[in-house]
Design a protein around this nucleic acid. Structure first.
Lengths: 352, 352
DNA sequence: AAAACAGTTGTGCACGAGCACGGCTCGGCA
DNA sequence: TGCCGAGCCGTGCTCGTGCACAACTGTTTT
C-alpha cells in the first residue's frame, strides 16, 4: 500500500515548511543542521518519488534538442531513424521538448562541418549526432563539451568522447552473423561474392568495413576453403553495372552465394530480377523499402536489420532522461541484430 | 514556429472565458450557439494540443490496473512479461497509474476462475488478461463488459470480445517460420522429431497446437517426404524420460533434427548434454533463462522468440493510452517473431 | 414592480513542485 | 536599549487544466 508522499507531507512529518524541504531536496540555500537532520530522517523512512508531472509543469523550461543526420530520400535508412525521433518528439510534447532536424549530405563531409557553427549558435540543450564522419563528429563533440551541452551518438561509436549515450550496432558481430547465415546453406568449399556497391564520393564507411571483417572472421573460424570474389560496382551507373555483372557471372557461373554489407541489396535484386535469376542466395542489410519486395520474392534470402526506429526513439529518450528526469543513462548501447526472412517480415514493424 | 496554445489563449482569441472553452472542448454543460461558433472558429485556425501534464495533475484521478497472469518461477516466460509491466508501471507512476498483479496457476483452470469475483470486487479502471484458458477468459471478459471496464488480452486472441487491444504472436506463422529454419539444413526426405513436453495437467494449449499446424503446413508446402516422429514426454519425470529418449534414439538413430513448440527445449538440452550428443539440430521457443546456455553451446540451434517484455509494456500502455490519453489503440497487434541464434543472442535484450 | 427562474458565463481554487521574496530570530555592536 | 545584518525559514505565486460554484442576463410569474 505505497502512498504518494508529497513535499507537503514530508514538511508536516518533519515539522518544517515545504520551502525547507525543497531546499534540502535540491541542496540550495542554507538550512540549519537541525532541520537538515529532521528532514533527512523522514526521507530515510519514506520513499519519496517526486511527481514528475508537477515538476515539469512548474519548470516552464523549454528543452530544445537538435539532431544532425544525413538527409534522406523516401525509403532510406535514415528516414526510419528520423521517424523514431519524430514519434518520441510527439510523445514528449507536453514536457516542453522540441526537436529540430539539421541535415547533411552523407557523401560530402564538408556539409557536416558547415553545421557545426549552426549548432553552436542555436541555443539548445541537447544534440543527437549521426557520427558517420568520425573526425568531424569528434570536432563537434569537443565544441559541445566546451558549451556543456550533452549529446548522443548514433551509428558509429567514437572513443574518448563524453557522449551521454551511444546507440548503434556492433558492426563486426553483424558481419559475423551474416557469415553464419550464409554458411547454413553452402559447402565450405563453395565460392562466394562480396558486392561493394558504392556511390561517387562514397567512403565505404568504417561500419561497412567492420562488417566485412566480422564476416571474414566467421569464414576463417569455420574453415572456409572456397574463394571470395569481391565485385566493385558504382551504384549510379545501372547500365554499366549490368554489363559488369553479366561479365562476372559468365566468368564465374559457380558463384551462387553473395552478400552486400550496406543497404543496397535491392540494386542487385534489380539485376537478378531483370535477368530472371532465382537460384542465387543473397544476404543484405536493413529493412529499407526497396529491399522488402526482394525479400518477399525470395531474391534476397536474409536481411540483417537493426531496429532503426528504436534507435531514433532511444536517442531522444536518452537526452530526455538525462536532462529532464535526471536519470542515469547507460552509455554504450548495442542494438539487437535481427534476422529477417520472408516468413517473419510482416510482423517486424509491430513493435511499440 | 509552432506555438503552444493554452485554453487561456483560446479564450482570449475568441472573446469568451476559459470556462466556456472548457465546456466546449469537453462538451459538457450548455453553451450558447454564438459562443460555440466563436470558439470553434478559433479551434479550426489553431491546432490545440492540450497539455497532458497539466491535465493529469488537475485530474487527481487514480488509475488502478489489474493484471491476471500465470504465477511464474524465476526464469520463466511470464516473468519477462511481468518485467515489462513493472517497468511501465514505474514509468507511469507520476500519472497516478497503479498496477496490481493477480496470479493463477497455469495448470489449474479453476485457479483462474477464482480470480474473477476478485477482479469484479476490486475497484479498477482496467484489466490485463492472460487468456490461456479461453472459456474462462471469455467469461471474465463479459463480466468486465457489463462493468464497462476496459481490458487487454495477452497471449491468445479470443474472438468476439470487446477488448481494447490484444498483444501476442501469430501462432501458425511462428510454426511456419520454424519450418523454414529447420528446412535450411536438412534434406526433404530426412526424418525429424516433434517433442511434446507436457506437465501433469498441462493442456497442450491451443497456441502450441497452432504452432504445430503452421509447421506442418510449411512441410507440406515444401514437399517434405520424410517421417515426423512425435515423442510424448512428461516433463516432470526426468529419469523416465531419459529412458524413453534413449529408447527412441536407439530405435531411430537417423533422426538428427527436432523441434519443441513450447519453451521447454532446455529439458531436451539437459538430455543431450548429459549424453554428450552434439550433432542434433534442435529448434525451440522463447528466450527464457534455462534455454540460453543451450543456445550458446549450440545444442539448441534456433530459438523463436517474441519479445515478451515488449508485450508487457504494450499492455499497460494500451490501457494508459485508452483511458488517460484517450487515444485510439489498434486492437489486434501481432508481435514480431524474432530468430535467435548463438551469434545475435547477446544483443537481444538491449531494446528500449 | 419584485421575485423566481432558466440559461449562460465568469471566477477561483485545486493538483504538486519550483522558486523568489519577505519576514523572522538571534547575535554583535554602538 | 536600539539597530543592523546574517542566517534561516515560511508564504505565496507560477505552470495549464478541470471543475464547482457564484454571478450575471433576460424572461416569466405573482
Amino acid at each position: 500500500m505505497e502512498k504518494n508522499y508529497r513535499i507537503k507531507d514530508i514538511a508536516e512529518l518533519s515539522g518544517v515548511s515545504t520551502g525547507t524541504v525543497d531546499r534540502i531536496l535540491h541542496n540550495r540555500g542554507k538550512v540549519s543542521e537541525e532541520a537538515q537532520k529532521k528532514v533527512e530522517k523522514v526521507l530515510k523512512e519514506i520513499e519519496y518519488q517526486p511527481n514528475l508531472i508537477a515538476r515539469s509543469l512548474a519548470l516552464k523550461k523549454k528543452y530544445r534538442f537538435i539532431t544532425i543526420t544525413p538527409l534522406y530520400t523516401e525509403g532510406e535508412y535514415w528516414e526510419k531513424i528520423c521517424q523514431g525521433i519524430d514519434k518520441t518528439k510527439h510523445e514528449l510534447f507536453s514536457y516542453n521538448v522540441e526537436v529540430e532536424h539539421l541535415f547533411f549530405d552523407q557523401y560530402d563531409r564538408s556539409s557536416f562541418d558547415k553545421l557545426i557553427p549552426q549548432v553552436e549558435a542555436a541555443e539548445c540543450q541537447g544534440v543527437v549526432i549521426a557520427s558517420l564522419f568520425k573526425d568531424s563528429a569528434l570536432q563537434l563533440c569537443t565544441r559541445l563539451d566546451l558549451l556543456q551541452i550533452p549529446y548522443v551518438l548514433i551509428d558509429a561509436y567514437i572513443d574518448n568522447t563524453n557522449c551521454i549515450a551511444y546507440y548503434g550496432t556492433h558492426s563486426e558481430d553483424s558481419g559475423y552473423i551474416a557469415g553464419r547465415l550464409m554458411f547454413e546453406r553452402m559447402l565450405p568449399a563453395d565460392d562466394m561474392a562480396i558486392f561493394r556497391f558504392l556511390r561517387k564520393g562514397d567512403h565505404c564507411s568504417i561500419q561497412i568495413l567492420k562488417r566485412e571483417t566480422g564476416f571474414m572472421q566467421f569464414l576463417s573460424e569455420h574453415k572456409y576453403s572456397g574463394f571470395v570474389h569481391t565485385v566493385h560496382i558504382h551504384a549510379d551507373d545501372v547500365e554499366g553495372n549490368n554489363l559488369l555483372l553479366d561479365a562476372f557471372f559468365s566468368k564465374h557461373p559457380q558463384v551462387k552465394t553473395g552478400i552486400i554489407f550496406n543497404s543496397r541489396a535491392h540494386l542487385l535484386g534489380d539485376y537478378f530480377s531483370a535477368r530472371g535469376v532465382t537460384d542465387f542466395r543473397l544476404i543484405g542489410y536493413d529493412n529499407i523499402g526497396p529491399n522488402i519486395p526482394y525479400l518477399n520474392s525470395g531474391i534476397i534470402t536474409h536481411l540483417i536489420v537493426q531496429r532503426p526506429e528504436v534507435q531514433g526513439v532511444n536517442c531522444i529518450k536518452a537526452l530526455f532522461r538525462h536532462l529532464v528526469l535526471k536519470e542515469k543513462v547507460t552509455q554504450i548501447n548495442y542494438m539487437p541484430l535481427d534476422i529477417l526472412i520472408k516468413e517473419n517480415l510482416q510482423y517486424y514493424n509491430n513493435y511499440i
